[in-house]
Amino acid sequence: MAITREGMTVSQTQQETDADKKAFYEQLQGFVGLQIGPPQPAPDEVNIPMIRHLVEAVGDENPIYLDEAAAKASRHGEVVAPPTMLQAWVMHGITPRSNEGDGPYEQMNRLLFSKGFTSVVATNCEQVYDRYVKPGDRLSMTTTIDSISEEKTTGLGTGHFVTTRQDYWDADGNRVGSMLFRIIRFRPAAKSKPKPPRPAPATTHDNSWWFDALKDGTLLIQRCKGCGELRNPPHPMCASCRSMEWDSIEAKGTGSIHSYVVTHYPVVPSFDYPLPILLVDLDEGVRMVMNPIDATPEDLQIGRKVTIEVHKCDPDLSLPFARLAK
C-alpha cells in the first residue's frame, strides 16, 4: 500500500513538471525570429593592417590576403580578407557597449534566469560565406534569435541551447556572410555532496592504540609478552596463556585473500559501489578485514597475494588497504 502511494506521488510530480516544462518552452519560442537591437556598423572598413595582424598571428601564408600581384593573378583579381575574419570587422573594442536597454534578448534572458538558468557557456559557431569581403568594404551586422531548444541536460547542468544568427551586410545591403552562434543557458548541476566519512570505529582502552598507530601510518599486530602469540583484533588478555602483558610488532605488509565479498546494497554514502571487501590472512598469521585498492571485483580470488598499505581515509581514520600482487 505504501509503495503504491509513493509511486503515485512520484508520477504526479513528474507530470506537473513535464507540463511546466512544455509551457516554459512555448513561452521561449515567442522570442525566435526576433531581431536583437539595431544593425551594428563596423567601426572601420575592411583594411590591410587588420588583415596583416590576423594572418601573421595565425601563420597563414596565402599570398592573396596581402600580396597585390599574387592576388591579381588569382581568381579574385584583387586582395581579399580571410573569410574567417567576418566577425572581427564588426567587433567593438575593449570598451563595453552602452547598455542596449530592454530588447528581446534581455527579455529572453530574464525569462531564463527566472527558472534558474543563470549560467552560460558558448558551445559552437558555424559561419557561412556569401562572398569574399575585400579592403574598402564597410560592413554591418544584424542579430536574430534563430532557435531555442527544449530543456536538455548536459554534463554542465540542465538548460536551453540558444542559437543566434548574425548576418553581415555590405553597404549596398547585400549579405556577405552569416554566423550561427550557439550558447547554453543552464542551471548549474548541484555540486555532489561531499562523501560523509567512513563509519568510525568504536575505540576503547583495549583497541585505541591500534587505531592510533594506523593514524601514524603503521599497521601493528598485538603480541603476547607471556607466550609470544600474535593476535588480532586487539583484546586485553591472551587466550593461550592469560597474560595481560603485551607489546606489538609492525606488520610486514604481506598476505593473501582468505575470503571476499562485493557489496551492492544497501548503498551507504561513505563508499563507492559495488564495494569489494577482503578478509586478508597476514603472513604473520593474523587476519584482518580491508578494502582492496586499484582492484575490480573480477580481480579478486581466494589465495591471491596482496601487499598492505596504510592510507588516510579522513583526519581521524587511517586503515590498512590491500593491493593485489602482480
Partner: peptide, 27 residues
C-alpha cells in the same frame, strides 16, 4: 559510537563497509 566491547565488535568491519548481516554472512 560508545566505548564498549559490545560496540567495538563492529570496529574491525564497519569502516571497511561491511555493515549488514548479509555482508557478514557473505564473507
Amino acid at each position: 559510537n560508545a566505548a564498549t566491547a559490545e560496540r567495538a565488535q563492529f570496529s574491525y568491519t564497519s569502516s571497511q563497509g561491511l555493515l549488514t548481516p548479509a555482508s557478514w554472512v557473505a564473507m
